[in-house]
Design a protein around this nucleic acid. Structure first.
Length: 301
DNA sequence: GACAGTCAAGTAGGA
DNA sequence: TCCTACTTGACTGTC
């Protein structure tokens, strides 16, 4: 049976705290920044403790952990210096419990944007994400995942621009960045082409692939994406979800389809992957997934 | 305390 | 042309 870590994104709904607290730009002050980051880190500690207690060893940290981190307004605020001890402690906890971390910047990161200012702010945002993982003391197997961003009227050119700009990213960003297939801008085949050109690992999303593919099964697609991960990248990460039948194609389900997940894990067989459950009810689904993994004898690395 | 309007940022697709 | 969705609702002024 396969070795699998399972996790959920950003929010633990069972705990009465959020690690994504923010404020309005107009309310910005150093004091507000310090208070918000302090509270966010305290919550993150609670969430990580809860996760390890429940054997959920994969977690996506919110991009809002440090609000306005890449915005000029916080340019003079040294969050890495002020919270160096806190961040190092959290990172040590992550390493001690062998937790895998991912980050998923928002839709405003458009590396191939025709707008120079959007390109510049996208790079700044990616640098923040890489710096956060660096400040936690985590190695390059902890990833930052992005989508292509847009086609801008010429899909082929959009990919070329993306590849060129990826290659020009600062090394600490490039070594952590992975690209995820979606049903709109970049199919798995598109992502694999980018990998062939510039070496970026491909994070496989099961739901997006089930909507847009070239006729290959989820397992076949997963294998092709997994082959793009080098040892230094760690186990391939996979985003898992099923369709919410009541909403548009691509909308994530509200609850885990346990039977579907069981079938998915069975078909993994010998494959070792880290599975991020993109299910709306977060940790509740992750707990159900753990039960399934235990039932099937999947090993927790 | 409840509510509604709004919030740093981009893009594409559908109504 | 406007609205919605996306990794995610949360913040804030008003009553």
């Amino acid at each position: 049976m396969s070795a699998v870590k399972v996790g959920y994104p950003a929010v633990n709904q069972a705990l009465a705290c959020r690690s994504s607290g923010t404020f309005r730009l107009a309310s910005y002050s150093e004091q507000r920044m310090t208070e918000t980051i302090t509270a966010n880190l305290a919550c993150l500690r609670r969430v990580l403790a809860w996760n390890t207690e429940h054997r959920l060893l994969f977690f996506r940290i919110t991009s809002d952990l440090v609000p306005f981190a890449s915005h000029p307004v916080s340019g003079g605020y040294d969050w890495r210096g002020r919270f160096a001890g806190e961040l190092a402690d959290i990172g040590a906890y992550v390493r001690a419990h062998d937790v895998r971390i991912s980050l998923h910047p928002g839709q405003f990161v458009v590396l191939n944007s025709p707008s120079e200012s959007t390109y510049a702010s996208s790079v700044a945002e990616l640098v923040y994400h890489a710096e956060l993982l660096d400040a936690l003391g985590l190695d390059p197997s902890h990833k930052v995942q992005v989508h292509l961003g847009g086609r801008h009227g010429d899909a082929e050119r959009g990919m070329q621009v993306w590849a060129r700009r990826y290659a020009a990213l600062p090394e600490p960003v490039r070594e952590r960045l992975v690209i995820e297939n979606d049903e709109r801008d970049a199919s798995l085949a598109d992502c694999l082409r980018l990998h062939a050109e510039v070496g970026v690992p491909v994070l496989f999303d099961t739901l997006h692939h089930s909507i847009r593919n070239d006729g290959e099964t989820v397992l076949k697609g997963l294998d092709r994406a997994a082959a793009t991960w080098r040892p230094v990248d760690g186990m391939p990460m996979v985003d898992y979800s099923t369709q919410d039948p009541a909403r548009r194609p691509g909308a994530h389900a509200v609850t885990l389809d346990v039977e579907h997940f069981r079938s998915f894990v069975r078909r993994l067989r010998h494959r070792d992957v880290d599975v991020m459950l993109e299910i709306k009810n977060k940790e509740a689904s992750a707990l159900q997934a753990r039960v399934v993994l235990d039932e099937l004898g999947a090993v927790q690395r």
